[in-house]
Amino acid sequence: MSLLEIHGLRKCFGSVVAADDIAFIVAAGEALGIIGPNGAGKTTLFNLIAGGLFPDAGTIRLDGHDITAARPHQRCRAGIARSYQIPRPFENFTVFENLLVAAVHGGRKSEADAAQLCGEILNRCRLLPRANALAGSLTLLERKRLEMARALATAPRLLLLDEIAGGLTESECAELVGTIKELRATGVTIVWIEHIVHALVAVVDRLIVLNFGRKIADGNPQAVMSSADVQQIYIGIEA
């Protein structure tokens, strides 16, 4: 059963082609990794899926419904949640209020129901001790966790994680990988962009490689990483 279907997706910024005829399918319950050099168009792809950008051509379907023209809040309510590569917390809110607005608006819950859900997510994402602290006061690791926790508070079926481990230390990264693995076990479908390939490969069962807005590889992580095209791009970057 496919949850997300993308066909012929194209987006240009002036002469830069950030998404060039991209097509792929994500099955329900799958964990998909996306890698590619800087400027390959990874974040642009997320913006197109979550609705922050509208494509020049192509279609996006969720559960078979065409959502290509839907506004971001509609896509969120339909089950797509995202984290931002550069965290964008609501800084004047507490950590808990960040999740609450997501659960109430994106998840369409009453505040009382939302409180229970948000508390559980904060606990799972190891943010509970900081629940009533202002989001503006968080460390980088906590901000990354907040990005993920806030996305989860909308009760998504499809979770888009954009470089959630970027900039973290080795042990922080390992901890985050543990949390994402736990999440996977709850059944949520994950698409995860990451430069840290070993972290990605520890979680995902499929890998897509982007370069200059094009999809150049798609399949089993080991097979993809050892293919000639990918080796050429990644030579010397990752063992």
Partner: peptide, 24 residues
């Protein structure tokens, strides 16, 4: 109210607010 919650989120980041389901 929940609308007030949305206003606070919009004030900090319109994009992020939309991405968590706020119809701004």
């Amino acid at each position: 109210s929940r609308r007030g919650l949305a206003l606070g989120a919009i004030r900090d980041s319109e994009d992020a607010a939309e991405s968590v389901g706020v119809d701004y």
